[in-house]
């Protein structure tokens, strides 16, 4: 049901748009400290950038850009990243998800929390991206067996 859309206009516009959507998604994930957005909205943009070629371009092309295995893989990596951000402070004697407890030379506690937020945002972004791509693939009958 996916595959090359008959209209050239639709194919070209979607092929041109999707890298820019990808770029904007990365920007939203990385820029969550200063602007609107963060991991969740950014992950959704990344997923849209992966799904748009699947709806409109030829299958062998779109599934080579983002393979089916990418969904579960990225979802798992993102989730593990979040859990790592939670458990690493415990190794330093802090509470779960208390980034300030991590002691690295030359990085103050507030800066550590800033970096912890960044790790969590990236984790959430990857997890949302993976989950959405997985749902779409499985809905379209394309899934890893």
């Amino acid at each position: 049901m996916t595959g090359a859309y008959p209209s050239v206009v639709v194919r070209v516009v979607c092929a041109l748009l999707s890298p820019f959507i990808l770029m904007f998604g990365l920007y939203v994930v990385a820029h969550g400290h200063y602007g609107p957005g963060g991991g969740f909205a950014g992950g959704v943009f990344l997923a849209v950038a992966a799904i748009l070629p699947r709806l409109t371009l030829a299958e062998e092309l779109s599934y080579r850009l983002v393979p089916v295995s990418m969904g579960p893989l990225m979802g798992g990596i993102g989730m593990l990243l979040f859990l790592a951000a939670g458990t690493v402070p415990m190794l330093f004697g802090g509470a779960f998800l208390d980034y300030a407890a991590v002691e690295v030379a030359a990085i103050e506690a507030a800066r550590m929390r800033y970096l912890g937020i960044l790790v969590v945002e990236v984790g959430v972004g990857l997890a949302v991206f993976g989950a959405m791509v997985t749902i779409f693939d499985v809905l379209m009958g394309r899934s890893e067996r």
Partner: peptide, 26 residues
């Protein structure tokens, strides 16, 4: 050091809620 309070709330002060939400999505 995060000017956007929404982000610091979601990912720092209330990060366990966010962990739960992400788990729900996965």
């Amino acid at each position: 050091q995060t000017p956007n309070v929404v982000t610091s709330l979601l990912a720092d002060y209330r990060s366990q809620d966010t962990l739960g939400e992400t788990l729900v999505i996965v």
